[in-house]
Design a protein around this nucleic acid. Structure first.
Lengths: 128, 128
DNA sequence: CTCACTGCTACGAATAATGTAGCAATGAGG
DNA sequence: CCTCATTGCTACATTATTCGTAGCAGTGAG
């Protein structure tokens, strides 16, 4: 799938508003997870694959290509890593970690039937 | 599609880390765009459909159901709107608007072949 | 009763993702 | 050289998700 180009019509916006292009790009399966994982430092293809547990290599390959084209990810000898633009994006993504913990506490009691274990995972997540 | 429950295995994370559940939820097509649109105030189903231009009603319906289950969106007489949790989420999403403009300026010169018009849209986007 | 509109469902066609197998390249050990 | 293991990545059939369009029931105005 081609990356959305801001200024061009993308999914959800004929006007080409850049925010819609971003939502298109980040709204693809695994995209945000890949950025999150890369924030810890350079990763190999295999490393990312393991981090994303169930991603298939062909999709990982597509997402990486897209993020590279979008200048968010790049590759060096140490492996794939975030570009400066990607780092910036991650700083915006970071607060979602804390929000997600709060969200989990609110939502989980509303879905008791699906809720057994969890506690530890939630508490331990703020480790970066 | 069922919403991801933090603490339960979701796409990309057997551990059930809440952040992965959030990425799963927000990483679905249109999800972030819907939240973005609702930040301007209550919207009708049709209003959202028009705002998202090319979304199909069945998908819009699914996304709304999911976001409602996730306590991010609710419905009242005035229409669909963000819950307090949803408003919080939007404040995290908001900075992406500014970043996207910056990103657009960087990326567009790298894709000259796809770039004709754009300028005005980019400049005028920071209106909330 | 009609007309226009709304929220929403149905459903086939198109597109995207999964899961698995496997290939070429690289590097270590013998 | 010749294995063997590992890595980055491709291929491809199966399955899941989304698109695009038609249309139904409900509401309110005229």
């Amino acid at each position: 799938m081609a990356i959305p180009i801001p200024g061009q019509p993308v999914r959800g916006s004929e006007s080409g508003a850049p925010i819609m292009a971003v939502f298109d790009l980040l709204g693809r399966r695994w995209a945000m997870g890949i950025i999150w994982n890369l924030s810890r430092g350079p990763q190999t293809f295999r490393g990312l694959q393991n981090a994303c547990e169930t991603i298939s290599p062909s999709i990982l390959n597509s997402r990486i290509k897209e993020l590279k084209q979008a200048l968010i990810v790049d590759r060096s000898l140490e492996g794939y890593h975030l570009t400066p633009l990607g780092e910036e994006l991650f700083t915006l993504l970071k607060p979602f970690g804390a929000w997600s913990i709060n969200w989990a506490k609110t939502i989980v009691p509303k879905n008791p039937e699906k809720w057994d274990k969890c506690g530890d995972d939630i508490e331990n997540q703020n480790s970066k």
